[in-house]
Simulated scan of single mutants.
Amino acid sequence: MRWKVGKVTITKVVEMETVGSTRFILPAATTDAIRKLPWLIPHFATEEGRLKMSIHSLVVETPTRRIVVDTGLGNDKQGRGIPVWNNRSTPFLETMIAAGFPPESIDTVLCTHLHVDHVGWNTKLVDGNWVPTFPKARYLFGKTEYEYWRDYTAEPDKVAVFNDSVKPVVDAGKVELIGSDHRLCEEISVIPTPGHSPGHISVLIESGGEQALHSGDVAHHPCQMAHLGWCSVIDTDTAQSAASRHKVFSRFADTPTLVIGGHFSAGHIKRDGDAFRFEALQS
Rank of each mutant, 00 (worst) to 15 (best):
I178K: 04
W39S: 07
T46K: 05
L37G: 00
V166K: 05
I25N: 10
E94Y: 06
L37P: 03
T18S: 13
I260G: 01
R50L: 14
P27W: 02
F92Q: 03
E145M: 09
R50Q: 10
L58A: 00
G79C: 10
T22D: 11
A137G: 06
K36P: 02
H214L: 09
K7F: 11
S180K: 08
V126A: 11
V218W: 00
V68Y: 03
E279T: 08
H196A: 08
K158G: 09
R277C: 05
T9S: 13
P192G: 04
Y152E: 14
D157N: 14
G74R: 08
D164F: 12
P42N: 06
S202H: 01
D127G: 07
G79P: 03
N86R: 12
T30P: 03
I188K: 00
P198G: 13
T9E: 13
H200E: 14
A45Q: 09
L228K: 03
P102G: 08
F249M: 10
T62F: 07
R245I: 06
P103C: 13
V119E: 09
P38D: 09
D235M: 03
H118D: 07
G229Q: 08
D217V: 02
A243N: 04
P63H: 04
K52C: 10
F141C: 07
V13P: 01
V68I: 14
T236S: 11
S180M: 08
A242E: 15
E147R: 10
G128P: 04
L58N: 02
V166I: 15
E186F: 00
V109H: 05
D157V: 08
E47T: 06
P42K: 05
K77D: 04
V59L: 11
L125M: 14
T257F: 02
A160E: 12
W3G: 03
D254P: 03
G49I: 07
E147C: 01
K136H: 12
D32N: 12
T62H: 07
S197M: 03
S283C: 06
I82K: 01
P103G: 10
S180L: 06
G267R: 06
N86W: 11
I41T: 13
A266N: 09
G261Q: 02
F101Y: 15
A28W: 14
H43W: 09
H196V: 14
S197L: 02
G20F: 06
I97Q: 14
L204A: 10
K247G: 05
I41S: 03
G229C: 01
F101P: 04
T95W: 04
